[in-house]
Design a protein around this nucleic acid. Sequence first.
DNA 1: AATATAATAGTAATAATTCCTATTTTTATT
DNA 2: AATAAAAATAGGAATTATTACTATTATATT
Lengths: 135, 135
Amino acid sequence: MALKHSKQRDMIKEFLMGRKDHPTADVVYANVHIQYPNISLGTVYRNLSLLADLGEIKRLRLGDGVDHFDADTSPHYHFICSECGSVIDLKMNSIETITDIAGADFDGQIAGHVTYFYGTCGNCSKVQSAAHSAH
Amino acid sequence: MALKHSKQRDMIKEFLMGRKDHPTADVVYANVHIQYPNISLGTVYRNLSLLADLGEIKRLRLGDGVDHFDADTSPHYHFICSECGSVIDLKMNSIETITDIAGADFDGQIAGHVTYFYGTCGNCSKVQSAAHSAH
DNA sequence: AATATAATAGTAATAATTCCTATTTTTATT
DNA sequence: AATAAAAATAGGAATTATTACTATTATATT
C-alpha cells in the first residue's frame, strides 16, 4: 500500500506541469516516450489515474470522449473549442453559488458540480471571419 | 437524405418518453427488445444519435463514461448520485448568467455550457444515516 | 546484502460505440 | 397494385479509450 517512488511517475507529472493545454493520456505517452523510450502506455494511464486520485492532478471530462489531464489543481473552469478541440483555462469570477441554487429544492446532498464552456476559440473565430471576408 | 419512417425509431422514442430516469443505450435496447425481439443494438445507437442530432432528444454526458438519453429537451439540469448512479432532474432557478460571467474576459465566442451536479441522492442519504445509527 | 513489496513493460481483455454490407422497409411513382 | 429508388435494418466486425494480468524490475527497509 505504501507508495513507492518511480521515475516514470516523476516524468509524467513533470511533463504535465510544463504544459497548459490539458493533454490526453496518449499525448502524455507520446511525449514522455521521447525521453524514456520504453515507458508503456499502461504505465501512463495508471499513473495519471493515481495522481488524480491523490489530488496532485485533475482529470477533465469535456464531452469529447477522451480524458484530459491538468496539473493545475486550483479551482478554475475550462473552455473547449468546438472547431479545433483545444482546451483553454478561463479567468472568471466565481460561480460557486450555483451549487446552492441547485440544492435549494433538492432532498439529497450536493457535493459539487462539473461545468465547462464550449464555443469557438479566439483563433478559430479569427480564421472564420478571415475566410468569410475573402469570399 | 430524406428521413424515412421506421418502427424501431418510433419505439425507441416512445420508450424514452415514458421514462424519466435518463437511460443508457443498452437499457433502451434491453427494454425495446422485449416488445421487438429482433431489433439490433446498432439500430438503437444509430437512432439515439439521429434523434439527438435532430434535437428530438438530448444526449447527456455525466462523467460516468456512458451516454445517457433524455426525451425532455427543455432546458434543465441534472444531478448524478455518486453512490447509486441514478440521474435526477433538478428544479432550480436559472443559472444562464454563468455564460456571461465566463465570457467577460475571453476572446472567443462562448456558445453554451455543460453543467451537472453530483453528490448523494435523497434515497442514498437516508440509507447512509440509517446504517450509521444502527451501529 | 537480503528481503519484501510496489511499479513496470508488454500484452490481452473489456466496454462503449461506430462502421460495414447484404437484405428488408418505406415511400413515391406509375 | 406493381415498380423502383433510397433509407433503414440486423448482425457482426472493427475501433477507441481504457483497464487488467503477469512475469520481471526497481525501490525501500532491515
